[in-house]
Amino acid sequence: MTAPIIRRKDDLQALTRAWRRAGDVIGVVPTMGALHQGHLSLVRAAKAGADRVIVTIFVNPKQFNDPKDLENYPRTEEDDARKLAPFAVDAIYVPDPDQIYPDGFVTTVSLGGVASVLEGAARPGHFDGVATVVTKLFTQTMADRAWFGEKDYQQLQVVTRLSADLDLGTEVVGCPTIREEDGLALSSRNLLLSDRARIKAPALNAAMERARGRIEAGEEVAQVLDEASLEVERAGFNAVEYLVLRAAGTLAPMDRLTGPARLLAAAQLAGVRLIDTIAVTPPD
């Protein structure tokens, strides 16, 4: 059964108010469309954790630094709706742009801390765009819970901090990264990879997995990360923007493995920017 596609917030809130009166737990899975199995795993988790599930599809211009990247971002609404049909979600919210950013809109939600490093430093204003649109989506959907993937690990931390700091009342739930059989993290951007680039793409995760093993075995973090970055570039990537070890949660830099941590990376491959993350666990 294909869920109704709703484009106006008043129409959406007519539903959500009725659900609230009935005592239903409302869940939301925010996306920018071009849905893949990673997104669908979030929908599956939401169906198990909420009475009513809304999937949002909105390509948010405020989180793109490069106009060409925004222009090229895949838009596949009809295909997305077909992929969602087996899950029987209660609504697909595809807001018209003026429902998110009406004429005269001048407000920006901005975070420091976890939003100021890595992606925040590499893409100025990116997390302001994320925080602003997520605040709008949480309030418009009246969601009790929201599901986000761990692949965008920094985004997950930003959204968690945002909801807590602003008392938005939405519990943020993180879900494991879904990967192809060769280790490549699923991403809508993978659709932009040429056949040749797609063959090279798994090298990023492979290098990170080897780095994790070495760090967990006690090798020097700085040397391991330098060698892993070089390995990725030798595999055919144009550049490694960062490949770092950070404390889980706070994203504070770590030069020694002293607690739960994350390897996080961003790298350019044939004009496509890929990110990935994996957990690093200290020895008992």
Results as ranks from 00 to 15, higher is better:
E181Q: 13
A211F: 10
E150G: 03
E77M: 09
M32S: 00
V89N: 00
L40C: 15
K62C: 04
P202E: 00
A88G: 11
R246V: 14
S188H: 03
A46S: 05
K151G: 12
E71Q: 00
A201D: 12
K83Y: 07
G49Y: 09
R82I: 12
A131I: 12
P86Q: 11
G120K: 13
A265T: 13
L166C: 07
D226P: 12
S116C: 13
V29Q: 10
P4N: 09
A122P: 12
R214G: 04
G249S: 13
G213P: 04
Y73C: 11
R123W: 06
G218H: 05
Y101T: 15
D276H: 09
A206V: 07
N190P: 15
S188G: 10
A88F: 02
A239F: 02
L245P: 11
L168V: 13
A121W: 05
T76W: 01
A252Y: 01
D182P: 11
L193H: 07
A85G: 06
Y93R: 09
A50C: 11
P4Q: 06
L257T: 11
D195Y: 00
L166W: 00
H39M: 14
S188W: 02
I92M: 02
D66M: 08
P202A: 01
P260R: 03
D284N: 15
F58E: 03
A14I: 08
E78T: 12
A46W: 05
D24I: 10
L257Q: 09
D11Y: 05
F127W: 10
A85I: 06
D103C: 06
A267N: 15
T281H: 01
M1V: 15
I92C: 03
S110M: 10
Y153M: 04
R161F: 02
V158N: 04
L12M: 02
E231C: 10
G49M: 08
S163G: 08
V89H: 02
A235L: 04
V53G: 01
E171H: 15
F64G: 08
Q154R: 14
A228N: 08
M208I: 14
A131G: 06
Q223W: 06
K68D: 14
P260W: 02
D276R: 05
T160L: 12
R189M: 08
V280K: 04
A48T: 13
R234K: 15
R212K: 15
L162R: 01
L204P: 07
D11G: 00
G49E: 10
I278R: 05
L186Y: 08
A266S: 11
L40H: 12
M32N: 08
L111E: 03
P202W: 09
D182Q: 11
V173N: 04
V117H: 00
V173M: 12
W19G: 06
D10G: 07
N60L: 06
A248T: 04
D195T: 14
A265D: 12
I57A: 09
T170W: 05
R44G: 10
L111Q: 05
N60H: 03
L156M: 13
V158G: 11
I57Q: 02
P176A: 13
L251R: 01
V280W: 01
A197S: 10
N65C: 08
E71T: 15
E241G: 09
